[in-house]
Design a protein around this nucleic acid. Structure first.
Lengths: 170, 170
DNA sequence: AAGACACGGTTGACGCGTCAACCATAACGC
DNA sequence: GCGTTATGGTTGACGCGTCAACCGTGTCTT
């Protein structure tokens, strides 16, 4: 045990407040937004992410890999979810011509209608429970905070595979 | 359709950045923290939440309801999860004396050791991927933001049941 | 050309979270 | 006391997310 930055001690009061607040907010906010979207539109957060990525794409179609970059999911998650969405008629799977291993996913008409119908609800909810509650300064602060965290996460990510390889003995 | 605050239009660039950043951060950060905790300690985020709530309680035991308030979960989720944790020997279920409907959950010795062992890792990870990346001002901003959002959510919550009742026709 | 390896994507198993239905007990109204 | 309703908690079914194993195809090395 005792990995990297172990003995840094407990959190200061300031840190404690920030972490505790963030933790609670993220858990309640995301479940609220997801629940609300589902019961107003029948689409989950996950559905919405996929569908709006496809909607934004030229021809409403995207290669599997491109979609994966867009939503940042594990490939098996994407595969499972697209399978279900296909069964629901929201999305269509075709084989890829340039690379016969690949797949291309296309928004169906039903899918297009579903996202478009959902967009207003989604935006309204995000305003109600987040954006409208914040001052412009707080909006910017949130942007900066996310930026810092995402940069830190990205910094680890490319290494991850290499590190795993090394640890596994090369 | 056209529920409450529908036609507020799309987001401004500032709002868009903030929302997009937040969305990405919350998704990647929570999966990173959860994954890391699991593989370093064998405890999931959910396990950790329960266990540390119990650890903080007098006698390391808590009534089901109290635990539910603490972690803010749906009662069925709590029940399912405590069932699994009991099977893993982390927690012990007893009948409640004051209220024979109720249940009391007690940290086992194994459970106590598990949380205590996990605490350092957890704190270190939270520092690494969040707290250490932020200035004191950003910490405070995060606290304020969460406060605003949580207040808004709380404002809806008490109503929710009443509203549901009414809608269901009384 | 042949083998090794990387890559895009799928599959199956399993634990998790949600919903709705349920059970037993407690509290309330009369 | 008796029926009604509310409450604490459990259960089962179902869709979701993750992991590890896998399959077929492309790519690189020689």
């Amino acid at each position: 045990m005792a990995t990297n930055a172990t003995r840094a001690g407990a959190l200061s009061a300031r840190e404690e407040r920030a972490w505790d607040g963030y933790r609670r907010m993220q858990s309640l906010l995301s479940s609220q937004l997801n629940r609300q979207l589902i019961q107003e539109t029948g689409l989950s957060d996950a559905d919405y992410a996929i569908l709006s990525a496809l909607l934004a794409a030229p021809g409403h179609r995207l290669r599997g890999l491109a979609l994966r970059c867009e939503v940042q999911w594990e490939k098996s998650r994407l595969s499972h979810h697209l399978g279900r969405m296909q069964a629901r008629g929201l999305v269509l799977r075709e084989d890829c011509v340039e690379d016969s291993r690949g797949a291309v996913f296309q928004l169906t008409e039903a899918g297009r209608e579903a996202v478009e119908a959902a967009t207003d609800d989604r935006v309204a909810a995000v305003r109600t429970y987040l954006l409208d509650l914040l001052t412009p300064e707080q909006l910017d602060a949130l942007t900066e905070i996310s930026g810092a965290v995402l940069a830190r996460l990205a910094q680890d990510d490319p290494h991850r595979r290499a590190v795993a390889e090394l640890a596994r003995g090369v």
